[in-house]
Amino acid sequence: MIRLALAMARFQIAAMRRSPHDLMALVNAPLFTVIFLAIVRYTGRDDLTGYAVLAPAMITVFAMALLASGEIIANDRTDGRLELLVASPSPVAVVVLSRIAMITLVSLVSVAECWLVARVLFGKAVAVPHPWLFVGTLAAIGLAMAGTASAMAGLFVLTRSARTFQNSLSYPFYILGGVLVPPALLPEWLRPLTQVVFLSWGTDLLRDSLSEAPVQRVLPRIAAVIVLGGTGFLLGAWLIHRVLLKVRNDGTVSHA
């Protein structure tokens, strides 16, 4: 199974190299960074530089999960590849999750991209006083994002109407995930909702890792990211199973 997962990850790299559309979010990331950093500079809030670097990176990670990972099954179905994949001896869920994991890994390049924009264009080197926490949180966010993406990949096939809202899904997620504005600064009535979004825990931890101050309650907060992301994985695996059963029953495996 590991060999299959690695082969699918390698395949996804090759597929993305030939499909620049899937990488557009990585092109947008530096532009968003410039916008956020320009706002920070204009308001004289250099203390928020880290926020302005993290936000576009997280936006990129989610955008690729939504638009590249979320479309994997739907695209294969439209192009007549899903029925051939179903007929192969490999579990579709493993194939899809491996490919999504690679997309998520590539999307994390945006963190370095945004950091470099701050360093090169604005002369701001964002320090990371808690590097292990930073890396660990990024890894947890990556896993959780891949889980969420697998759920979306299933959902977009199972419920076609969900695709109508695909683009607008981003904005509530950015707000509830505390991408730019920490959840603690959101209206009080909205805060409980942020607790069930893994990214809100993740972005708070990332911001804390950029601060000199000791970080409180690290393990439970990372656990929250992993548990919520793991729920996404389980939901994704279940949805993919349901989707395949449904389309094999309906005879719509190859429907566009």
Binding site: R3, L4, A7, M8, F11, L84, L85, S88, P89, S90
Partner: peptide
């Protein structure tokens, strides 16, 4: 190569 991987063949 993609399909050979799906048919569980080593690289």
């Amino acid at each position: 190569m993609y399909w050979s991987a799906l048919y569980r063949q080593p690289t």
